[in-house]
Amino acid sequence: MSKKETKNDLAIETLGLTKIYGSGNTEVVAMKDASMQVHNGEVVALLGPSGSGKSTFLAAVGLINPPTSGKVFIGGQLTLDGGEAYTNLRSFRRHHIGFIFQKSNLIPFLTAVENVQIALELNGETPRAGRKRAMELLDYLGVADRADNLPSMLSGGQQQRVAVARALANRPSVILADEPTAALDSSRGRQVMELFAQVAHEQGAGVIVVTHDHRALDIFDTIYEMEDGLMQRKIQHAESSV
């Protein structure tokens, strides 16, 4: 496939992603032939037991840890073909991908609002405009009153909401979340999941959420499941029985 090949209707498409660590006797296949399509505005849940390859898949789609083989398309643009990058990955992540992790992963020496603002400033926003948008997001997520607190002064749930605000800051076309509700109570967890769905539908972003929280699966448009590195099942929401 040429470098200019695009598939404009898809937010995310992976083709035969395989990740192999080590070689010879120490070879471990973390992910094998994993393919997925996420349309614009679609919210996808990725289920699976620990060690099944979910995080490896997410790292490959997030252009953090390239696969050994297979292709990754973001917004229809070929970005990775095996280990070969077809764009400046870091710049691409900055513009197009929002990350949310199990742990909030906030920068400890920045306040809540600054943690959101930095993502905007890295994308060329002025400090004033960045702060305004960051405050709007924090307000939207219900943590505006803690804007000037350092992460160490926030509860786990508050930290996670700040992390969500940071991920949404640049209106990314792709949001990747790795167990984002693990540190939240069920009510807050559901709110966050609904927020993802709302963002996906309003902004047309493709969202992949790795989760163990089966209580909120009704929110997702599509559910994938990984086991032993294989993308095993694909369940449309209507037929989900999990």
Partner: peptide, 11 residues
């Protein structure tokens, strides 16, 4: 924090 900055795309 530096790894995180790289992750969110800091040049």
């Amino acid at each position: 924090s530096i790894a995180l900055l790289k992750l969110i795309g800091a040049p």
